[in-house]
């Protein structure tokens, strides 16, 4: 079975080193108030991970800009989600 990292390796990105377009608003909300942490298994690029303390971290480098995490966090509204700056982010070769 192909891992998600291997899949993402095929994609083309222009990563914006200066600014992450997605941020977790309040880490405590994930750790304390969110039971299931659906972002950690629903994100199709596997951008979200949970550490041993139950804290959720996001690394946006592989982001496919689909909006899943934004919609799935509807209850807590704890994902600050913007599109990357113009020209940055995923650059689909085929789409």
């Amino acid at each position: 079975m192909m891992r998600v990292e291997e899949k993402l390796f095929q994609n083309r990105y222009r990563v914006d080193g200066a600014r992450a377009h997605i941020e977790i608003v309040d880490g405590d909300v994930c750790a304390v108030h969110c039971q299931d942490k659906p972002c950690t298994f629903c994100c199709p690029a596997g951008c979200y991970a949970m550490d041993n303390g139950g804290r959720v971290t996001v690394i946006t480098d592989g982001c496919l800009e689909c909006g899943t995490c934004r919609v799935i966090c509807g209850e807590h509204r704890n994902v600050r989600w913007e599109y990357p700056r113009g020209g940055y982010g995923i650059l689909f070769k085929f789409g």
Partner: peptide, 9 residues
């Protein structure tokens, strides 16, 4: 040969 992986809502 797989050349791109995408996701979309």
């Amino acid at each position: 040969e797989m050349k791109e992986y995408t996701a979309h809502l």
